[in-house]
Write a protein that binds this DNA or RNA. Structure first.
Lengths: 157, 157
DNA sequence: ATATCTGCAAAGACTTTGCAACCGC
DNA sequence: GCGGTTGCAAAGTCTTTGCAGATAT
């Protein structure tokens, strides 16, 4: 995390931008998250401890973190964007539990390789990809699949 | 497409909903699209020929089509949702050109199989997945990669 | 006849932008 | 001191909702 902050400062510096108190605090809070925060969520984390920071600044700083290559923005099909650390050495994908919302990460070389093949065959030049699996995590599937009481998980809705 | 309309009417009927002129026209326009329309886009298609249909009704009808299992809603990370026919026998994934926005579909059994493995290993019960590859399509990659005039594609934005 | 629909306008959720005061460098 | 920055409020998207008049069954 020390690294990340340094990288961020370096980025700001190179880009002729300023290392303000707000940016520092927001970046710090961001790097302290486990993973997958919304702008709002990060705002609350920061705001809790340091009142004078606006949601707008969080949005702007997240954009800077993206430009600095330190954050990825994800759209998991809910309304809002979630941000995660980009530094992770390996690219990874996500499994999202449709019941409890838990997000698990994984990586698989073979899939990546197959993607490469497909893309090449279609004449595309790949830049990045997004693979999301949706389903029930172990806990939720047990609850829904077994118990005679909890028959849901297929509600009309 | 005749099928689809019938299916839709049957769905409405069963659900105690009404087969109105608007729903008929919107569904018809939807089934006539090649693929991937936004609500707005569908609205324009319908509205062009039949003035008295509101965007709101298009949204509502698309929701019905989803409930009827006839449409899928996709989020390709732009602001808006795109809808496509759900009837397609096979599941398929998408390649999106980041330059011109062209969307190409493909399917690959091996990837699906690998996904199954991963998911099982992690104890998840998969419901559906989303695989999106982003890159430059043949046309755009030629334009950007070669021509000395068109150096962009990496603009600071 | 009546419960469902439609379209308009308004509201909502999320994100961006305009602007005057503010603050790193 | 200058130019980038902040926070507020306002505007912008996309989508949903409230409501009175219209319509399918």
């Amino acid at each position: 995390m020390r690294d990340k902050l340094l990288q961020f400062r370096r980025y700001l510096n190179r880009a002729g931008l300023k290392a303000t108190r707000q940016r520092e605090l927001i970046a710090r809070a961001f790097f302290a998250t486990t993973a997958h925060v919304s702008a709002e969520g990060l705002y609350r984390r920061v705001g809790g401890r340091h009142p004078r920071i606006g949601l707008v600044t969080v949005y702007r700083t997240l954009k800077l973190l993206k430009n600095a290559g330190l954050a990825h923005e994800r759209q998991f099909g809910e309304g809002r964007a979630l941000f995660e650390h980009a530094s992770s050495e390996h690219h990874h994908d996500h499994i999202i539990c449709t019941e409890c919302g838990k997000i698990t990460e994984f990586e698989n070389y073979e899939i990546e390789a197959l993607q490469e093949q497909i893309v090449r065959r279609l004449g595309f030049l790949i830049q990045y990809h997004k693979l999301e699996l949706y389903g029930l995590c172990r806990d939720c599937s047990v609850g829904a699949g077994r118990g005679p009481g909890t028959v849901s998980a297929m509600g009309s809705r």
